[in-house]
């Protein structure tokens, strides 16, 4: 049967952290999952730095099954930081792990295209894609991260970017409005990433040598005059790029060790729309789920947990239909 004619049990729109966990959880429950993404190259992207925090900051519950394995495979460092844990993940490895796992997982079909509209009918949901496909599923889940945005007013150049250089669904906001789903504005910020070779390592401080669960044993940190601690978080095991975890808009020349630092990825912020939690309980929205940043998650851990819950719930609902 054509991949385009098949009716899926669960349609997951978005293959970020929430989306991959949702697809995984739904497939584990024997659902036929279609994972739709604008770019299969950016699956499970960790765009907001390498640090993982669970929904409950004090207790970092390990994620189940492959979700936990993917983190373990890509761990850079895990060590105590005050009352919590600092967990740093190699985004390239994390992405590779999820990409390959979902490509091989029974019940998961991956398709690269952008969802421009989502419509409900008696049977379930239909996603209309920008390249003209009409994909049907019993239940649908939106996990598009920061890619739901206001349409630019007519006349202005339309450039909807959920992350710098990455495009998303220009018209999905119209479907959201037609479904009567309330949205509110939110904003997310990423700190700068600097080249490791441009840091003056003599002027920064060594983190406490505790037990690290990852291959990197020590993470350095520094301070700008007076204000809080900035962890020099490597974004990969090789450590060639350093994310400034805890940065609060200080100019680099005011930070010890970073006076001559070269920025590889400047700080950026993205304004996006989130969907209110109440929506998920409404009766006529049965079969429509939201997870991740779109549903207000503020960390990868929270996105992952929401994805797992929503994926399992969607699989359950699809069996009842």
């Amino acid at each position: 049967m054509s991949l385009l004619d098949k009716e899926y049990d669960v349609l997951v729109v978005g293959a970020g952290v929430a989306g991959v966990h949702a697809a995984y959880a739904a497939a584990l429950k024997q659902a036929e999952v279609l994972l739709l993404t604008s770019s299969w190259d950016t699956v499970a992207t960790l765009a907001w730095g390498p640090s993982w925090q669970s929904a409950n900051l004090k207790k970092q519950r390990p994620l189940p099954g492959f979700a936990g394995k993917a983190l373990a495979k890509s761990l850079i460092y895990q060590g105590q930081r005050g009352e919590g844990l600092l967990t740093l993940t190699d985004s390239f490895k994390y992405q590779g792990a999820w990409k390959h796992h979902l490509e091989r997982m029974a019940g998961v079909t991956v398709f690269q295209d952008t969802c421009e509209a989502l419509e409900a009918d008696k049977r379930g949901w239909t996603a209309l894609t920008s390249w003209g496909a009409s994909l049907k599923a019993k239940t649908a889940m939106l996990a598009i991260g920061p890619f739901l945005q206001e349409r630019a007013k007519t006349g202005e150049a339309t450039r909807l970017e959920g992350r710098p250089g990455e495009t998303g669904a220009e018209r999905l906001i119209e479907s959201i409005a037609s479904l009567g789903i309330g949205v509110s504005e939110d904003e997310c910020r990423a700190a700068p990433t600097v080249a490791a070779h441009s840091i003056n390592w003599d002027l920064v401080r060594k983190g406490a040598a505790g037990k690290s669960a990852g291959p990197v044993g020590v993470v350095y940190w520094t301070k700008a005059a007076g204000r809080g601690r900035i962890e020099l978080a490597p974004t990969s095991v090789a450590g060639d790029q350093i994310y400034l975890q805890g940065w609060k808009n200080q100019p680099l020349q005011d930070i010890a060790g970073l006076e001559k630092a070269h920025t590889t990825r400047p700080a950026f912020s993205v304004k996006y729309l989130t969907v209110s939690r109440q929506v998920m309980d409404r009766e006529h929205m049965r079969g429509l789920f939201f997870a991740g940043r779109l549903a207000g998650a503020k960390s990868y851990g929270e996105s992952a947990e929401q994805g797992l819950r929503a994926g399992a719930a969607a699989a359950n609902v699809s069996r009842e239909t």
Binding site: P164, G165, A195, H262, T264, R265
Partner: peptide, 12 residues
């Protein structure tokens, strides 16, 4: 990234 004389920078 290993070449100290190259400043890689994201930006359009």
């Amino acid at each position: 990234l290993a070449e100290p004389k190259i400043g890689l920078r994201q930006g359009e």
